[in-house]
Design a binder for these strands. Structure first.
Lengths: 186, 186
DNA sequence: TTGAATGTGTTGGATACACGACAAATCCGC
DNA sequence: GCGGATTTGTCGTGTATCCAACACATTCAA
């Protein structure tokens, strides 16, 4: 909306850095990746890295957010309304994202990843809710977004624990009717 | 050798521009490619283009030179000596280069292409000769390089005219003994 | 022929990036 | 533990790139 388009140089450089990080993640564990590795791979100066990111954890966070958003098909949800179909589809995207992560070893950063997933989900849910309810009850919508984001994330953890024999869609659909009754007015 | 390494920014930008040009060459004819097309495809500002190239003809020239050098396997010849094997191999590289060009339509620029090929060949022949003859007769070596570069180019034109039924190697090898006797001392 | 649209080439000022240097932190063999 | 080597963050300065604006050339439909 009001976002003045960012300098193409920073778009390019951010992409170079993130791609380099993803590339390296497929060869080494996170803890073995140095900033020097990244800047060398990205063909940019080390000082430039610090111009865009605070440190390597900041980079991790932004890369994960972005990858998750791609999985979530951000543009789609931004214009759509929140219903059961969207809810199921988002759950599917989250499980996909987590599967892709386990390939690139990020051992020891499960908490960080969990937080990122929840934060992004919260933003998306909030935007979708806003679109339907016209900000008449802003605080209520925010709380709803929080509840849904934590709930979805919890479900994805449970799905991983379950051994993933059922599909994500079926898995979450099992619960939906009970969630409904669980919050229905008496 | 003495070349102070160039700023990585210019390496990146030159590559972006050249790649964009090659990409566009595969879709349009040269005459239909605008500088705006190139800068858009390369994701750089139009002013930046003029920082690196005089105009689109300058770009054409530099792209062709570079592609030809890759075909010539520059690093290899730079360290090797000039003998019959190298001579044949260079001829092969030139015919290869011309075949790849006819795919990307550069109609109307045959003269430019011819000049570029000759200039690059001249440089390479001269360097190889220098390596063997220690610059004892600089002027003689320069003239030799000119003769060989024009000769090779002429042969490649003749090869194209001939219908290319014989392989480039066989084609040039047919002539080599006669060239030798043609310049043998009486 | 005219005029609107698009492309060319150039300029000045703002900003992102490269580079070298630096102190501090961390790693690692001995 | 110690000491050298590597990595981390930061800074000042020079330079490559961006951007908006400009005059001019070319194209092309009315």
């Amino acid at each position: 909306m009001t976002q003045s388009k960012t300098d193409p140089r920073v778009q390019r450089t951010r992409k170079l850095i993130m791609d380099a990080f993803i590339e390296l993640s497929e060869k080494k564990e996170f803890k073995d990746i140095t900033i020097k590795d990244i800047t060398t791979e990205a063909m940019i100066n080390r000082a430039t890295f610090y111009y865009h990111f605070e440190d390597i954890y900041d980079l991790l966070e932004k890369v994960l957010s972005e990858v998750l958003l791609v999985n979530l098909n951000y543009d789609f949800y931004q214009n759509d309304e929140l219903n059961e179909e969207a809810f199921v589809s988002i759950f599917h995207a989250v499980t996909n994202f987590q599967k892709s992560l386990s390939v690139r070893c990020h051992r020891g950063y499960e908490d960080t990843i969990a937080r990122i997933i929840r934060e992004q989900l919260e933003i998306i849910f909030y935007k979708m809710l806003l679109k339907q309810h016209k900000a008449e009850q802003d605080e209520a919508l925010k709380i709803t977004a929080v509840v849904l984001s934590w709930g979805i994330y919890g479900a994805s953890v449970q799905w991983k624990r379950s051994g993933q024999e059922t599909s994500p869609e079926q898995f979450i659909k099992l619960a939906i009717p009970y969630i409904r009754t669980g919050i229905d007015r008496a």
